[in-house]
């Protein structure tokens, strides 16, 4: 049974059909990519999945449980967490605190335990910090714990967002253009990181990418959106040959070209 299942998910903004009856299934243990030209509705799909938008129609099931009507924090609690296309870190908080915020739903401390600073609470905080530091290391940011998030470089901020998302201990990780603005070697090490995550930190990854080298390099499956419609899906090599996909990207020269 699929980890995530979307059935006929639609989302309209006024007269604009951002998502049109999208069906997607995601199995355990896979890295899947969501591609499509600019404005195809990829980010909208993420926002709908994570409860920032409510779909107009359709059903979203995660581990066989409906996510419709849940608030963003409940969906995070259920095991989905994400990064943002336009980095949304907590700028005036330390790197460590950014990651610790990601653990909010996993740290069940009561108000009175905080007031009294009980042993159990302190032990939990310590454990949370250890785990946060481990994730910061995983993201290649060791030693930067006490810097403010906005002091990091662009690429580092993207990786910190991944560490923060991992802190919520998700089963499914959603990454919105994680390699944007990175050079080839940075993108390479990011791909290596994703492979390391599967099975050890998360059960599945769904990523939105414009960088076709990344998409072709690590995806087990690719889903293609165009004007809110899913026009193709399958193994990367199949999708690459698909006439509708070529058509969608036609006139743009290369895969990575952007629609004006």
């Amino acid at each position: 049974m699929a980890l995530l299942e979307l059935r006929g998910v639609s989302k309209r903004f006024g007269g604009l059909q951002a998502l049109a009856r999208v069906d997607i299934e995601l199995e355990d243990g896979v890295i899947a990519s969501l591609i499509g030209p600019n404005g195809a509705g990829k980010t909208t799909l993420f926002n709908t999945l994570t409860g920032l938008y409510q779909p107009d129609e359709g059903e979203i099931r995660f581990q066989n449980r409906s996510l419709i009507g849940l608030k963003p924090e409940q969906i995070t609690g259920a095991g989905i967490s994400r990064t943002f296309q336009n980095i949304r870190l907590f700028s005036h908080m330390t790197v460590l605190d950014n990651v610790l915020v990601g653990m909010h739903s996993r740290l069940d401390t009561k108000l009175w335990q905080i007031f009294l600073s009980t042993q159990k609470y302190q032990a939990r905080e310590k454990a949370a910090q250890r785990r946060a530091i481990e994730l910061i290391e995983l993201a290649g940011l060791s030693g930067r714990e006490n810097e403010w998030a906005h002091q990091l470089s662009y690429g580092e901020q993207r990786r910190l967002e991944i560490a923060r998302a991992l802190a919520a201990a998700p089963k499914l990780l959603l990454l919105d253009e994680p390699s944007a603005g990175m050079n080839t070697s940075e993108a390479q090490s990011l791909m290596a990181l994703f492979k390391e995550l599967i099975g050890r930190y998360v059960q599945a990854i769904l990523l939105i990418e414009h960088n076709m080298r990344v998409v072709m390099g690590i995806s087990d499956r690719v889903h293609v959106l165009d004007y809110g419609e899913k026009i193709a899906e399958g193994h990367p090599d199949e999708v690459r040959q698909d006439p509708r996909v070529i058509e969608a990207y036609l006139g743009q020269g290369v895969w990575t070209a952007r629609r004006p």
Partner: peptide, 15 residues
């Protein structure tokens, strides 16, 4: 503080 910095990101992180 997370809410102060970015409410949407805070919600998405489970706050």
């Amino acid at each position: 503080k997370a809410i102060r910095e970015d409410e949407i990101a805070a919600a998405a992180m489970g706050v």
